[in-house]
């Protein structure tokens, strides 16, 4: 089966990651696709609330504590066709601090889910767990709003992803300490990414090529949520362009979602917005984005970056 895993993330909270994830899932389910939404916002899960799902079915916490053997058993059905959801847990505390082996097991189980599409709804911040879930998807979708705080955190999130990719490849290829020191300089912001690659390629061309290819394999998408006017739409394009130039990544601007006050009203009524207001501009934008993700040749033929997690 041709499985597709998408992750919806971004550094800042409240930008609408869960809204975008839920809406993408609902629209693709309406196209007769089998979808599993996984709430990986481990510290503050609320994807099920956006969908208005209440059930006593096992959730992610039950899988992580071993009460159910597989993640498949934790995926509960919803009233919307082929859409299932793995709810985040609210009963078990400190799940967010899962150790490395639990994370690897969870990633394996996500890949083994019996569904053609899996959408991961990630939490805020740039913790290793969040980054690894984001990097396991193809493509990862970064959701921002037209505010400096959201843009600042999105850049930080992307830089953290880049550092994570480079470190994983350095560990895998056992690249010497000299290059590790260079990487530390980037983290301390005393050297730009361009200068790092330039000096790396000058000192060892083969390592430079490996790492640059690894970086170009990281191809996230950008969604600008809550756009109020044309300037906000253009700002989304500008952010993707600046990320392409300064972070050297192949970032695609997926689109913008117009601001709609009805989203809050739907949320208060525990009803999914895209089903309640099908003809709104926001719902149309979500439909367009999900169809592009699902059917565009650019996305279907994208090969994921090969990420090997270290075993230690």
């Amino acid at each position: 089966m041709d499985k597709r895993i998408w992750a919806v993330g971004g550094g800042k909270g409240g930008t609408g990651k869960s809204f975008v994830a839920a809406s993408l899932g609902l629209h693709l389910a309406s196209l007769d696709r089998d979808i599993v939404l996984v709430d990986l916002d481990l510290g503050a899960p609320n994807l099920h609330t956006l969908l208005g799902v209440k059930s006593s079915h096992p959730d992610l916490g039950d899988f992580l504590t071993g009460r159910v053997a597989s993640l498949e058993e934790a995926a509960s059905p919803t009233p919307w066709g082929g859409l299932r959801i793995v709810r985040g847990t609210e009963n078990i505390l400190f799940v967010a601090n899962m150790n490395h082996y639990r994370k690897l097991r969870l990633l394996r189980q996500i890949r083994q889910l019996r569904a053609r599409n899996v959408i991961l709804d990630l939490g805020t911040g740039s913790a290793y767990n969040t980054l690894d879930f984001f990097l396991s998807a193809n493509p990862g979708v970064v959701v921002i709003t037209p505010e400096p705080t959201a843009i600042e955190n999105a850049y930080l999130f992307l830089k953290s992803c880049i550092m994570r990719v480079l470190k994983l490849y350095m560990d895998h290829y056992k690249i010497p300490d000299l290059h590790r020191k260079m990487l530390d300089q980037i983290e301390k912001n005393s050297q730009s990414l361009y200068a790092f690659f330039r000096s790396l390629i000058d000192s060892d061309r083969s390592y430079g090529t490996i790492l640059y290819r690894a970086l170009r394999g990281f191809r996230p998408c950008l969604v600008m949520n809550r756009c109020r006017d044309e300037r906000d739409v253009l700002l989304g394009r500008s952010v993707a362009d600046v990320a392409r130039r300064y972070l050297l990544i192949d970032m695609k601007y997926l689109g913008s979602v117009p601001n709609d006050d009805q989203v809050q009203a739907s949320l208060r009524g525990l009803r999914p917005f895209v089903l309640e207001h099908r003809d709104s501009a926001a719902a149309r934008a979500i439909r367009q984005m999900s169809e592009e993700l699902a059917y565009s040749i650019e996305f279907t033929q994208r090969t994921p970056a090969e990420i090997r997690l270290p075993d230690t």
Partner: peptide, 18 residues
Amino acid sequence: QGALATYQPGSLAVYSLV
């Protein structure tokens, strides 16, 4: 016009990165 909007003084697109 697009490039001017991206790199004009006070542009949010380059905030904290450039």
